[in-house]
Design a protein around this nucleic acid. Structure first.
Lengths: 339, 339
DNA sequence: CTGTTAGCGCGTTCAG
DNA sequence: CTGAACGCGCTAACAG
């Protein structure tokens, strides 16, 4: 990497002259500016980011802590984070926790050494289960702003972005009823996760509200060791639902394929709706109608909130330091041919 | 962030004393060391990475440039990169190009300003199509080591990690023949990609080698605007293959579901094999037998090669500066019940 | 118009 | 045993 010093030496001027020239300072003569810029271009000079950071105490980098990069939802959020960060001129450094609280602590340590200006985090499952947020709280005590998304907790004061899981299902039940469906089943493999619970609650409440009663046989909870295909087939044959809502990104597709092999007409005899996205809906025919989570929007909003905080820190803008916002991103049922 | 200076002030000693004490220097008395460490711990002192980097000219960060974070293969590689980087004590900055050469140039610019010690890159589709690698070559002229994976070119001299796409399919045909299959179909949606071509070539060559002839009707190329389900159904009904190999990560699953609805017994009457992974195989019943790409291994190896280069740069190890390696990672057919 | 100096935070001489 | 001074690359206040 070529430095100001080397340019200065070659041009036989001082370092600060070169620096000023490159910044079009009015203190420097036009000829000198031109001369300097020419050589800088020739030598392909780029100011050293590290030195800039040391001086300005800003890195223009944000840190992201997520449980698992292979989880499609998180990679979508990450994608949204990248887009928005790019827009604001920030780099992104990502760390994954693999759902482990220890790795999460390590991750925050890594990001506490001055290499990022702010952090976006979705907590690990273990952290949520242990209900131990001390490392997060400790982090918020420092002056690095933090934004939580998806996996959040009331115990920590910061900006948050979450999905409206409850209403995602609640509204879906409502919509299916309006389509004339009378016996709606709910299939889930993620009942131990918070989001899974919110979704199940949405289903239960909606069933009470719209059908006046709740038949718990219409909820199928498939534990990890069971075969999803077999369980769903039994469920359909036994209960003969006229609609199925899947709480995860996989059982919707499976339900369609099962139904098809049972010669059940979709969507005429059975509506199927599930979480997912365009890619996932491709795996079944007819294509699954999906509840879309706006992952990239969540990433976007997280960055916006974080940038606001960072700006108010650097430029002392209006943002109230004691007031935090929680944004609730609605879901949306889109596409497909199965509803 | 607490600094040495502040600790020194509070302890009424000099900065260098604090620094030495924290490094257990023999120049410092035991009492002082203890005193200093105690306060450092209390104040939660962490040496500032930026300052360290400026001094050492190393950032302990690697940059990753990939076409698309939502592509499952790349996110698996990224996962492998994270694991290996973590192991070696490196952070990871990721930039995505969205298959655009312009964004790829920008990305390399971002990573040319001293914020990373090395770069791992899979080129964008546009770069490959335009056959314009000047920005990459320019980058390799600097002293930052670079490793290419998956999307590579002979035109650039550097370490590379690639998948053995040709043999993945070639060997699969061989294996299916050994199972007694006589009419093997090949379904692809990615024929414009290089990898797609390698896979198709592997199929063609294997068919010649093992069956003595090549029937081009047995290759189904589905262009982007067509419905995959319909095309595959027509293909199966018309050609009645006893085996299908999918060149992408989606047609395998679709083939199984189609066959099932046609009452074709899998794997008795029809074997299906496709690229993919465990998650994808879940979407069909019976589960798809998948050609596994070892994405995380590719990420791992890329990091290893890069770390070697960086070490040889810093510590002047044996690595010959003019000799580069290309690692070819074999694929592996695993799991499932469809073969 | 140009150069000198100081300082961001750190580790490492070199003096005392 | 401890402190002062230097330099990594850069910007900015201050001299000339």
């Amino acid at each position: 990497m070529i430095t100001l010093k080397e340019l200065a030496k070659e041009l036989k001027v001082s370092i600060s002259t070169v620096s000023k020239a490159l910044h079009d300072s009015s203190e420097i003569s036009v000829q000198t500016i031109e001369k300097v810029k020419k050589l800088a271009k020739k030598r392909n000079y780029k100011p050293n980011k590290i030195a800039l950071s040391l001086k300005s105490n800003r890195t223009l980098t944000i840190g992201v802590v997520i449980p698992d990069i292979l989880n499609r939802f998180y990679s979508k959020v990450l994608d949204g984070i990248h887009d928005a960060a790019d827009e604001h001129g920030y780099d992104v450094i990502t760390v994954t926790t693999k759902e482990s609280i220890i790795k999460e602590m390590d991750s925050l340590q890594i990001l506490s050494t001055g290499n990022v200006d702010g952090v976006i985090i979705a907590m690990s499952e273990e952290t949520l289960n242990k209900n131990d947020f001390s490392h997060i709280r400790e982090f918020t005590m420092k002056d690095t702003p933090i934004v939580m998304f998806d996996r959040v907790t009331d115990k920590i004061n910061c900006d948050k972005v979450i999905i409206d899981d409850f209403n995602a299902i609640y509204n879906e039940v409502k919509s299916l009823k309006e389509l004339g469906r009378k016996k709606i089943g709910f299939v889930t493999t993620i009942n131990d996760l918070n989001v899974g619970k919110y979704r199940a609650n949405g289903f239960r409440k909606a069933t009470y509200d719209f059908f006046g009663k709740f038949d718990k046989n219409l909820i199928l909870r498939i534990s990890k060791n069971l075969d999803k295909h077999i369980e769903i087939q039994k469920f359909i044959e036994k209960n003969k639902p006229d609609a199925i809502i899947s709480a995860d990104i996989i059982c919707g597709v499976i339900s369609i394929n099962i139904a098809r092999s049972l010669r059940i007409k979709i969507p005429d005899e059975l509506s199927v709706v599930g979480f997912g996205d365009k890619t996932i809906s491709e795996y079944s025919s007819p294509k699954l109608t999906t509840i879309y989570q706006h992952g990239s929007q969540i990433g976007n909003r997280s960055v916006e909130l974080l940038v606001d905080r960072m700006n108010s820190k650097w430029f002392g803008l209006e943002k109230n330091i004691n007031s935090f916002t929680t944004e609730i991103i609605p879901t949306m049922t889109i596409g497909g041919e199965s509803k």
